[in-house]
Amino acid sequence: MRQEQFEEFVRGNLPALGRYAYVLTGHREDAADLVQDSLVRLARAWPRVDEAGSPLAYAKTTMVRTHISTLRRLGRLRRSEFEDLPADDGFGSVDDGVDLRRALRTLSPVQRAVVVLSFFDDVDDVTIGHQLRRRPGAVRALRHRALRSLRAALHDNPNVEVRR
C-alpha cells in the first residue's frame, strides 16, 4: 500500500518537483539528477514522511539540501558555465532573459537556493534558515550578496540596464 502511495505521490508531483529542481540548479541534466537523488531519499523515509503528512515539503527540503551538498557542487564544476540555458518562453526581451539566466549561473548553490526560496517559494528567512541549516541573519546576508552579484554580472553586460 505504501509503495502505491509513494508512486502516486511521484506521479502527481513530478512536474512540480522537476520544475523546482530546474529552478534550483539552472541545468536540465543536474535537475534530472537532483530529482532522482531526492526521490531515492524520500523513498527510504516514506513511511514516516507519509505519516507526518507533508511529503512535498520534505521532498523540496531534501532537494535544497542535496543541491547545496559540498560534493554535488564538485560534480558540477566540470560543466560549462553557459551550457543548457533554459529556453526563452517568449515573454519579454530575449537578451534580457538570457543575461539574467547567465547571471544566476554565477551564484553559488547556496546563494541560488536562497534566491529561489525567497523569490520562487516566497518563504520567510526563518523558514529558509531551517531548510538551509543557517541562521536568519546568515540568510539575509546570503541574499544580499546574491543580489549584489547579480547586479554586478548584469552591469558587466552593456546590453542590460539594471536599476538599483
Binding site: 511521484v10 520544475r19 530546474y22
Partner: peptide
C-alpha cells in the same frame, strides 16, 4: 525580474514518471 524569471514557463523539465520510478527504488 528574478521573480519573473523563476516563475516563468521555461523551467519545465518534462520528466517521464515511469522512467523516474524505474530508477527510484521505493519501499
Amino acid at each position: 525580474r528574478v521573480r519573473r524569471e523563476l516563475t516563468g514557463s521555461r523551467y519545465e523539465l518534462g520528466l517521464d514518471p515511469d522512467d523516474v520510478l524505474a530508477r527510484v527504488s521505493g519501499p
